[in-house]
Amino acid sequence: MTTILSDLGDFSVAAAAAKEGLWLSSAEAAKATGWSLQPEGLCRGNICVPVPSGREADFVADGSVNLAAFWDHLDKPAARSKDGDIWALGEAAADRAESLKSLDAPDFTLPDLDGTNHSLSDYRGSKVLLATWASW
């Protein structure tokens, strides 16, 4: 199994181990990242990114998609373990910046000490002071 760490969470997915890149079925890609393979290209919601022409083999094969190639094509940051069994797939700085400048507070879900998850959006309707600290 391969682990993908994305904005949606941590996911175990079945990836084609023998190939370079990060080859997943469309369903597995959608589970881990929200992006799936469609006739128009790689899509999430209303946004579709066409497969670059002439480079099809690097991006799609037999219904599988190379997420690593797409991530690079979309200028999104990624980091992989040496064995390629763990991938952190981040969002592009420009997208993060646009999100912050929209002033819509990015949602997140984190656990408390008991393991109970809390989301920022649970507190819609209240003013929120989001305050960080650390033990170190």
């Binding site: 981040g90 993060r96 999100s99 912050l100 002033l103 819509d104 507070a105 990015p106 997140f108 920022l120 959006s121 819609r124 309707g125 209240s126 003013k127 929120v128 002071l129 989001l130 305050a131 960080t132 600290w133 650390a134």
Partner: peptide
């Protein structure tokens, strides 16, 4: 990562509509 923070303590004020 989401709020581009670099240290602690840092804070963000968010209103009732989820606006920063």
């Amino acid at each position: 990562e989401l709020y581009n923070m670099v240290n602690v303590p840092q804070a963000v004020w968010i209103d009732e509509d989820g606006r920063i």
